[in-house]
Design a protein around this nucleic acid. Structure first.
Lengths: 146, 146
DNA sequence: CTTTATGCAAAGAATTTGCATAAAG
DNA sequence: CTTTATGCAAATTCTTTGCATAAAG
């Protein structure tokens, strides 16, 4: 979703368009990857918005509650957030945690089949999935020995 | 891997077989699911082994370094550990975090295909994957309204 | 004006570190 | 004996809470 659309949606629902809120929404819509609290704080610092950690945490909570962002979880166990969008998967660099998006229809179909099978066989309801691919990106391959 | 095999392996590598170490290995090999630090401490308490938190954290680190256990990550962002074993996936209850193992050869083959494709297309090396299925287990379906 | 957001300090939870002591072999 | 593991207290890191003040509309 684009910045303007999110802002309009928030305004439409009578939510306030504060400085920190706008900056965070703007940041989320400008980056493609999931970002951490750390990165948000750093970014706000860079554009000279002094926002308190607490405010950032509270804003994340707000944006989650509005389904504007989603939480994602990679193997380093750091919480990251990204703009809520069409279901997709991530290809994550194990070294630098740079992220690229993965889309694959055939594969998605296969996942549905497996989910349905599990649902029946193991008696689980509402089965969905979480898939990430991990590798070493080209930059890290060049920069790192090992 | 079975308790005895792990113990033999550790002894073979001249690692000490302390009380806490044996109890933790025994616990890991007795449960099928990934367990949290909390659950380990609770279990040790139940069998009247007074072990300090710190010791548990250090022992986990040790067992990880020996590739006896592996860390797994679910959506609640709590660290869990399980005996290192043949590659597999998890079917996790979104409510109670009970875990069942998933095995599916066809699906695994499909995952390899996708990994290989991503590796080429996105220029990532050593691409592997992490897949979890999330649903609501039968017990939680019965116990909970919503 | 009224409501909601913000900052700050302090509280909590999870994890790690330093150091002296205990236990393994 | 020598080395490794343990416990305890304190330090760190990440996150949340309470409360008074500021900003949005």
């Amino acid at each position: 979703m684009k910045y303007e659309d999110i802002i309009m949606r928030l305004a439409g629902n009578k939510h306030r368009l504060t400085r920190v809120r706008k900056c965070m929404v703007e940041f989320f819509s400008s980056v493609q990857s999931p970002i951490s609290v750390e990165e948000i704080l750093q970014h706000l610092g860079e554009i000279s918005i002094s926002a308190n950690k607490t405010t950032v945490y509270r804003e994340l909570e707000f944006l989650l509650s509005q389904n504007i962002i989603e939480e994602v979880c990679f193997h380093d166990m750091k919480k990251r957030y990204e703009i809520a969008k069409k279901h997709h998967h991530h290809l994550v660099c194990k070294r630098c945690y740079r992220v690229e998006e993965v889309e694959c229809n055939n594969f998605e179909r296969e996942l549905s089949v497996v989910s349905r099978r599990l649902s029946q066989k193991n008696h689980f309801a509402y089965v969905d999935h979480s898939v990430e691919f991990y590798g070493v990106c080209d930059i890290c391959s060049q920069n790192t020995i090992v």
